[in-house]
Simulated scan of single mutants.
Amino acid sequence: MEYFAMSYYQLLVFIHVLLFVLWLGADVGVFMLGQHFRKRDKYDLPQRLILLQLLVSLDMVPRTAWALMVPITLTMADAGGWWDLPGWAVILAWLVGGFWLWLVWDAHIHDQTERAARDRMIEFFLKIGLTLFYLGLGIASLANEAPLIPVWLATKALMFGLIFAAAIMIDVAFKPVGPQLGKLIAEGSSDETEIPLLRTMDRTRIWVWIVYLLLLATAFLGNVKPF
């Protein structure tokens, strides 16, 4: 029975690492496609729009991994003996993660519709709630040494909340891209249509780099466990 429990925990750790690799690896691909989309001197507009379509499709990988990280992290904390969660809490975590995953894919499948806009609005508030949850969990654990006792794990929970916050800011900063891209397609490539779009992408990239740094720091804490 003890061997089975250890194997179950190790499986969860493997899935956790796999989701991290998919999240960060695919997101770097999204970043590179965005970089090439910016090169109007190298690609014509139809080619750049194809790059953008590829970007949107590839972006579903980190978004999927992000949603699954919620139930995996909490289940892992319970299975590893880091946090004694009641069964209903673990089930709730999976229901929340599953619902979030459905919102992400439903919005993608029905893109540019009122249904997609509704999905993304619900997802936005769900992410705010999860941000507050992980920030509160990390801060409370650091202050009270409970419910997460190891400092590295409490800090990791806090940083996961910060990742949520920075990732939300990516979506907020990227929001003007829709109308700006529509203007670019309708009026063609010019300084008037390109420069505002590039400025929006530049502002978004700041938050992207913050997410990357936080992800690497979180991975370091989880593997090295320095304190």
Results as ranks from 00 to 15, higher is better:
residue 195 I to Q: 09
residue 46 P to W: 08
residue 111 D to W: 15
residue 36 H to Y: 10
residue 115 R to G: 01
residue 214 L to K: 03
residue 141 S to F: 01
residue 115 R to W: 06
residue 178 G to W: 10
residue 50 I to Q: 12
residue 209 W to Q: 14
residue 72 I to H: 00
residue 213 L to V: 14
residue 20 F to M: 09
residue 174 F to A: 14
residue 85 L to V: 05
residue 16 H to L: 09
residue 123 E to D: 08
residue 103 L to C: 01
residue 21 V to H: 00
residue 82 W to I: 07
residue 171 D to W: 10
residue 193 T to A: 05
residue 215 L to T: 14
residue 93 A to G: 03
residue 93 A to M: 09
residue 149 I to P: 02
residue 138 G to A: 01
residue 120 R to V: 06
residue 154 A to W: 01
residue 120 R to F: 08
residue 71 P to F: 05
residue 58 L to P: 10
residue 3 Y to V: 15
residue 209 W to Y: 15
residue 65 A to N: 03
residue 30 V to D: 01
residue 150 P to D: 00
residue 49 L to S: 08
residue 9 Y to N: 11
residue 106 D to L: 03
residue 39 K to V: 12
residue 191 D to W: 09
residue 208 V to L: 10
residue 215 L to E: 13
residue 82 W to H: 13
residue 47 Q to A: 13
residue 101 L to H: 08
residue 47 Q to M: 12
residue 224 V to E: 11
residue 181 L to I: 11
residue 7 S to Q: 13
residue 100 W to N: 06
residue 175 K to M: 12
residue 94 W to P: 03
residue 185 I to W: 08
residue 110 H to C: 07
residue 176 P to V: 02
residue 98 G to D: 06
residue 25 G to R: 06
residue 71 P to R: 02
residue 157 A to Q: 04
residue 180 Q to C: 06
residue 172 V to R: 10
residue 130 L to M: 05
residue 167 A to C: 00
residue 225 K to T: 15
residue 23 W to I: 08
residue 132 L to E: 06
residue 124 F to R: 01
residue 175 K to S: 13
residue 124 F to T: 06
residue 147 P to R: 00
residue 61 V to S: 07
residue 61 V to K: 00
residue 59 D to V: 05
residue 64 T to E: 06
residue 77 A to K: 01
residue 74 L to E: 03
residue 109 I to R: 07
residue 190 S to P: 00
residue 61 V to L: 10
residue 75 T to V: 06
residue 222 G to C: 05
residue 78 D to R: 04
residue 157 A to H: 00
residue 70 V to A: 11
residue 133 F to S: 01
residue 25 G to L: 03
residue 208 V to N: 02
residue 138 G to S: 02
residue 78 D to I: 07
residue 178 G to L: 14
residue 128 I to R: 01
residue 132 L to K: 03
residue 76 M to A: 06
residue 53 Q to F: 07
residue 173 A to P: 03
residue 108 H to E: 12
residue 179 P to W: 04
residue 205 R to W: 10
residue 169 M to C: 06
residue 41 D to E: 13
residue 101 L to P: 00
residue 163 I to N: 01
residue 42 K to C: 13
residue 15 I to F: 14
residue 66 W to E: 11
residue 48 R to C: 04
residue 199 R to K: 13
residue 145 E to P: 09
residue 181 L to N: 10
residue 217 A to N: 00
residue 132 L to F: 10
residue 54 L to F: 14
residue 93 A to T: 07
residue 68 L to W: 08
residue 157 A to V: 05
residue 43 Y to E: 13
residue 218 T to S: 11
residue 6 M to N: 11
residue 20 F to R: 05
residue 32 M to F: 08
residue 80 G to L: 02
residue 47 Q to V: 07
residue 87 G to H: 07
residue 10 Q to C: 04
residue 152 W to K: 02
residue 52 L to K: 11
residue 87 G to F: 01
residue 225 K to S: 11
residue 46 P to R: 04
residue 55 L to A: 11
residue 45 L to D: 08
residue 215 L to P: 07
residue 122 I to K: 05
residue 42 K to V: 15
residue 208 V to R: 03
residue 142 L to Y: 00
